[in-house]
Amino acid sequence: MRLDKIVKELGLEVLTERDIEKEVKGVYIGDLLSLVMANASENNLWITIQTHLNIIAVATLVGLSAILIAEGMEVEDETIKKANEVKIPILRSKLSAYELACRLYELGV
């Protein structure tokens, strides 16, 4: 499914430049970076509450399609700056990871 459609349907906040016209294939949820590295698949949408700079390295290395920050967590400026550089969109929602997963499932992601 297209990321811009997910953003619209779930009312997500886009924290990076609006580079969201890309495909999403599946979802991965996790806050332990080693597990995300080992188990997430390419083009996954990654739901996490981690917000520091290193999430961008993980997303780039795995080839994730975007990072979705749950629970409305604050995201550091340097994380957003780096995300813009490497074109990894950062999205945010006040919902929990579970609620987001349910909504994404209903959407058919």
């Binding site: 332990l32 597990l35 290193n54």
Partner: peptide
């Protein structure tokens, strides 16, 4: 707290 230290680093490298 930053999401490191899961004790998966070396096992991941070996795998």
């Amino acid at each position: 707290e930053l999401g490191f230290g899961a004790g998966m680093g070396l096992p991941n490298m070996k795998r």
